[in-house]
Design a binder for these strands. Structure first.
Length: 265
DNA sequence: GCCCAGGCCTCGT
DNA sequence: ACGAGGCATGGG
C-alpha cells in the first residue's frame, strides 16, 4: 500500500491508540478483532492480518493533511510541529474500545492505560484472528457480567464503576455506534451523559472514533502548548481559538501541537 | 515519603 | 459559574 504522507512510527506511538507494540521494524497491533502486523519501508507499507481496505480506513489515508499544512505556513507553532513530525495522522478507531480506553485514561499514564486495556482484552476478549496470537478487545456483550470488583482487579482503580456503567448502557441498547450520525455537538453531548466522561474524553471519542476533526481534546499538554504558543489559556478559550484558527481540522492541529509539546519534554 | 499521569465527580462558595 | 479536594495505581 502506498504510504506517502504517513509516518507509522509517529502515528502508532503518539498515544491515541493503546494496543500497538514495535518489534524490530514491525508494528504489532490489535484492531477491531484483528491481529495486524505492519511495516513501513519508505513510501511503502507491508502488512499482514487484514485487508488493504481495512488498513486504509484505520489509518484514515483518505484524509487530506496538505490543507492543514498550507494553513500552518502562517502559523509558526503548528508549522514547527508539523515539520518535526510529518506523517502524524489521526487514526479511525472503534468507538467502544475508544470510549473504554479513554475512560481508563483519566488521571492515568499511558503505560498504565495500555495495561488496563490489555487486562480487559485478556479477561473478556476472544482470540483475535490475523498475524499473531492475541486477544481482541471485548464486545459489550462479552463484558455483560463484569463487576466493579473484577474491573478493579484489572487495575482500573476508581474508573471501574464508570466502565461497568458504560457496559450496562451498551447492553441496554444505547446506540454508541449511531452517535456519529447526529453531528459533533450532539455526539459530544450524548457521550458526556455517561458517568466518568467529561469534555476531554468525549472529544477524544469524537476525534479518534467518529472522525470529527473539529473536536479538540484539551488536556495538560494542550494547555501547555496553547499557553506557550498562542498565549491562550482557559479550556473554553482554547477550544474557541483552535476552532476559529483551524476550523474543521482543529483537532488535527491540536494533535500535532500535543505531540510536539510532549516529545519536547 | 513526595509529585505527576491524555480527568472527572462532588461539594462548597 | 468556579475552584478545591479526592480518587486507584504505578513510576520517577
Amino acid at each position: 500500500m502506498d504510504a506517502k504522507c504517513l509516518s507509522l512510527d509517529t502515528t502508532l506511538s503518539c498515544g491515541q491508540a493503546f494496543r500497538w507494540h514495535k518489534h524490530g521494524e514491525e508494528w504489532h497491533g490489535i484492531v477491531s478483532g484483528k491481529a495486524i502486523s505492519v511495516m513501513q519501508d519508505g513510501k511503502q507499507l507491508h502488512y499482514n492480518g487484514c485487508s488493504e481496505r481495512f488498513l486504509f480506513r484505520y489509518l484514515s489515508m483518505d484524509a487530506d493533511y496538505a490543507c492543514l499544512r498550507r494553513k500552518a505556513r502562517k502559523d509558526p507553532p503548528l508549522l514547527m510541529a508539523m515539520d518535526a513530525y510529518p506523517g502524524l495522522r489521526i487514526l479511525r478507531q472503534d468507538p467502544w474500545e475508544t470510549l473504554v480506553s479513554y475512560i481508563c485514561s483519566a488521571n492515568n499514564s499511558i503505560p498504565n492505560i495500555q495495561r488496563c486495556v490489555e487486562n480487559i482484552a485478556g479477561k473478556y476478549g476472544s482470540r483475535a484472528g490475523g498475524a499473531f496470537e492475541a486477544f481482541a478487545f471485548p464486545q459489550p456483550g462479552q463484558m455483560a457480567d463484569a463487576t466493579e470488583k473484577q474491573l478493579r482487579s484489572l487495575k482500573l482503580g476508581f474508573r471501574a464503576p464508570y466502565v461497568r456503567d458504560a457496559v450496562g448502557l451498551m447492553n441496554d441498547g444505547w446506540d454508541l455506534y449511531g452517535l456519529g450520525r447526529f453531528g459533533y455537538e450532539n455526539a459530544k453531548r450524548e457521550l458526556m451523559t455517561l458517568n466518568g466522561v467529561g469534555e476531554k474524553i468525549a472529544d477524544c471519542v469524537c476525534l479518534f472514533a467518529f472522525g470529527f476533526g473539529e473536536a479538540v481534546p484539551i488536556d495538560v499538554w494542550a494547555r501547555r502548548a496553547c499557553k506557550e504558543s498562542y498565549k491562550c489559556t482557559g479550556d473554553d478559550s482554547i477550544r474557541a481559538f483552535m476552532r476559529k484558527k483551524f476550523g474543521a481540522h482543529a483537532g488535527w492541529a491540536q494533535e500535532y501541537l500535543f505531540h510536539y509539546a510532549r516529545m519536547k519534554q
